[in-house]
């Protein structure tokens, strides 16, 4: 059992942070790696990239958006409650290297995944420009945390309620035009990563994205997580989750993410109705 020792709701309760006791994972985990969580006996195995780890305390932190039945179930867990199963750390860690000027682009809860990577890039001596986007001001997360570990931070909101009015790609373009960017890291919704990669391709700047396909085991034994990268099939759980953004087939990924959409919608609605009853 994996106990929740700290919990915070963000963005009006649509995003939740859990700090969880998992000493073995905390000791081993590196930025970019993920865990698989299962709340209860009948639960589903859900992959989430860690937002932080504290090896001394023996805890890991995850930040998730409530999007379906499983995350709605996660949300019912309070401090002192436990996840039945957590497996990790899984996936390859981010390759961190001193390159010079780098840009870290985060969208939605992708910012949570981006956070430890940004910190890693900063700690190793890079000049880090952060660009963080959200649909609107009240669902923007980790602004202060990102500010503390970046040399410049740009905020964008789709509705203009805060920072730049518009998409992260617009700010990114300006930053790239100023020149000398060695690498871009983009983590967020698939369309965002797709468009970021399109722009960075124009500027010929190496780009790394972190993918979140449907997974079951997370150890390379089911192939459910397969993605096409540069025309080759890769298993995101073991070959990734990070890939060269210029080579990923985003349209295929978008479609594959819809595989159980109908089932999920129904299941989530039933669960919400039950909870309200």
């Amino acid at each position: 059992m994996f106990k929740i020792v700290n919990r915070k709701e963000m963005a009006g309760g649509t995003i939740v942070m859990n700090e969880i006791e998992a000493p073995l994972i905390a000791k081993k985990a590196k930025p970019g790696q993920f865990v698989i969580l299962k709340a209860a006996e009948t639960g589903e195995r859900i992959p989430l990239t860690m937002a932080d780890t504290n090896p001394d305390k023996g805890t890991i932190t995850i930040i998730y958006m409530v999007v379906g039945k499983s995350t709605a179930l996660f949300k019912t867990l309070n401090i002192g409650d436990s996840y039945q199963d957590i497996i990790g750390p899984l996936g390859k860690p981010t390759h961190l290297e001193k390159m010079g000027k780098v840009v870290c682009v985060g969208g939605g809860t992708g910012t949570a995944v981006l956070y430890p990577i940004t910190r890693g890039l900063k700690n190793i001596g890079n000049y880090v420009i952060g660009i963080v986007g959200a649909r609107s001001k009240d669902i923007l997360i980790l602004e202060d945390e990102m500010k503390a570990i970046t040399d410049e931070l740009h905020i964008c909101t789709d509705d203009g309620s805060y920072g730049h009015h518009g998409f992260v790609t617009e700010v990114l373009k300006t930053v790239l035009q100023a020149g000398d960017i060695k690498q871009v890291v983009a983590i967020g919704p698939v369309p965002m990563m797709k468009f970021v990669s399109k722009i960075t391709k124009e500027f010929n700047v190496p780009t790394m994205v972190s993918l979140n396909p449907i997974m079951v085991d997370g150890t390379g034994m089911c192939g459910g997580c397969r993605v096409s990268v540069g025309g080759e099939t890769k298993f995101a759980c073991v070959d990734g989750p990070e890939f060269d953004g210029h080579l990923v087939d985003y349209d295929e990924l978008t479609r594959r993410l819809q595989a159980y959409c109908e089932d999920e919608k129904k299941c989530y609605n039933d669960f919400c109705t039950l909870q309200q009853a």
Binding site: T42, G43, E44, R45, K69, S70, L73, V216, D217, M221, C222, Y260, D263, E264, K266, C267, D270
Partner: peptide
């Protein structure tokens, strides 16, 4: 694995589709 380990044949009682 979905069917046996995750008991998807008992979906939606079990959450895995």
């Amino acid at each position: 694995t979905r069917t046996n380990l995750m008991k998807a044949y008992r979906y939606p009682e079990y959450d895995t589709p």
